[in-house]
Design a protein around this nucleic acid. Structure first.
Lengths: 138, 138
DNA sequence: GCGACTCTACTACGAGACGTCGTACGACCC
DNA sequence: GGGTCGTACGACGTCTCGTAGTAGAGTCGC
């Protein structure tokens, strides 16, 4: 996954905030993003460049809307974050054989100990759900 | 936490591989790291520079050993990884109020669904252990 | 005591990522 | 038909990182 710079992340935040990915959202135009980041006082073209680079990285997708483009996140924020977490976990594989749960396990344990109780609960629930056959109503 | 380049990570891997942090380990010298990375055919000073930068980033600590320095990881690999994971999770807070489990929760759920069954088990066990009073013998 | 090693400290340089724009130019609205 | 708005490109400065070279000081064998 692509690594994002500070401004790039800010732009993604704007997009994530207003356009959920799969559910139909019209996304945002360069102008809209620029306005959303008004406090940064950025040139219109700066935002355009960033959006363009984000598209190049596959972080956003765009579609024509008249003469302009509308950008929206290629994936929801959670997916991006989960991806980053998995990548972090992967560096535990340092030249060692895969499938082996060495440092990965240790890292997971450390991680589990670091999340707040509330989040631990969420994580536990998610794991639970995953191990279930799944498909239960609400 | 500092972000590491490719070579920096390789060097950290060497250090992590030979010098566990807290337990007394004498760490490795520039020479030793260079030898460990012999296949890369790097100049001695290249490794020295990298180790120096790593020290500047707080990733390694060093102590004199005669005229030379001995480097060792400032923290074990698992700690680094767990830290990266937590940081990834933190970007879920995008300008929103903290303490709220919005995207963080969603990200955790995504993550939970992505780890392999074996790791999910490990994670579950770690969470379990965390919620326990802890302090049980072996 | 001198020369060959070995280490460290600095300095450097090129590539690539990123923040930040400017310019040129086509499309639209009134 | 002249502003306005949007796009496409190109650019530049700063940082990070990989990669080293050089200078100079400490060490050891003879």
């Amino acid at each position: 996954m692509a690594r994002l710079g500070e401004l790039e992340r800010a732009v993604m935040d704007v997009l994530w905030a207003r356009g959920t990915p799969e559910p139909p959202s019209d996304g945002a135009t360069v102008r809209e993003v620029t306005d959303a980041l008004a406090d940064r006082d950025l040139a219109y073209t700066t935002v355009m460049t960033v959006l363009d680079r984000l598209a190049g990285k596959g972080m956003v997708v765009r579609q024509r809307d008249g003469r302009a483009w509308r950008y929206q996140p290629a994936a929801p924020r959670e997916a991006y974050i989960a991806q980053l977490m998995l990548e972090a976990l992967d560096i535990a594989q340092a030249g060692e054989a895969a499938a082996e749960t060495g440092d990965r396990g240790a890292a997971l344990v450390r991680f589990a100990r670091s999340v707040t109780g509330q989040e631990a609960e969420l994580l536990r629930a998610a794991l639970e759900e995953q191990s279930r056959p799944a498909g239960e109503g609400t």
